[in-house]
Design a protein around this nucleic acid. Structure first.
Lengths: 121, 121
DNA sequence: TCATTAAATAACCAATTAGTTAAATAACGT
DNA sequence: ACGTTATTTAACTAATTGGTTATTTAATGA
């Protein structure tokens, strides 16, 4: 699977997003990460494998612990990808503006509706 | 499933991302969307259902066509979520800067290594 | 050496996913 | 009314996912 797909897939699970949130506060061991969840350790290990596979975390060894560390590089890729679409949702604001403008003018019944030029789509 | 999870899940497939890319150029019918892919129509219909379920597209009727339209609102949520982590990958740049700085000073053997204050993690 | 703690692996299960083909629906044009 | 085009639904399959319990590996410390 391509990088972007495996990153999105990894982020599509709330448990994994919670793990990332915790890791954003600093490194943590598997047991520490598992604590807030009502799932078994092997389940956590699997989630960590998914995150590691997407490059979202890296792991090291420290005595019997395997501390996890957030690696945000794939998120950067996601951010770049999603920014392509920013103009789409900002246009929605335009539309909201237009809507609100129309509501206002509608309250003064004498005025005609303005037809603003639309961007593509 | 929560909104963010279903959005990420929908985006985790390259076919669906390609469909969104095409829709960013304007509305399109199912057959038009299906054209670039070597998959059956029912498979495309299913992808569209996933995208619609995540709120990433909306559909209307126009004669026998069911035109699809990009709805970027969920992407906006994704963008907001990912921005939480921006400082993480920007810190990586800091680290790279620090590394490059060290490489440079290492080339002039008289100088000592600087120990910059680190942000959390 | 032996018990303890940390974590991973193995083997299994149920639900979901991404695809298929074949059949059904919906709207159009003649 | 009938054939065509657009799309969906149904029924099935193979692979993947997210979880489990039981077992194993790795490192610590007494």
């Amino acid at each position: 699977m391509d990088r972007l797909s495996s990153t999105f897939a990894a982020l599509a699970d709330p448990t994994r997003r919670a793990i990332l949130a915790k890791l954003s506060l600093g490194e943590a061991s598997v047991t520490e990460l598992a604590k807030p969840f009502a799932i078994s350790m092997p389940a956590v290990t699997k989630h960590l494998k998914v995150l590691e596979g997407a490059g979202l975390i890296s792991r090291s060894r420290e005595a019997q612990f395997r501390p996890c560390k957030l690696e945000a590089a794939p998120m950067k890729e996601v951010s770049r990808w999603i920014e392509q679409y920013r103009w789409c949702w900002e246009e929605s604001f335009d539309r909201l503006d237009a809507y609100l403008a129309e509501v206002q003018t509608a309250e003064k019944p004498g005025k005609k509706k303005k037809k603003k030029a639309r961007k593509r789509h």
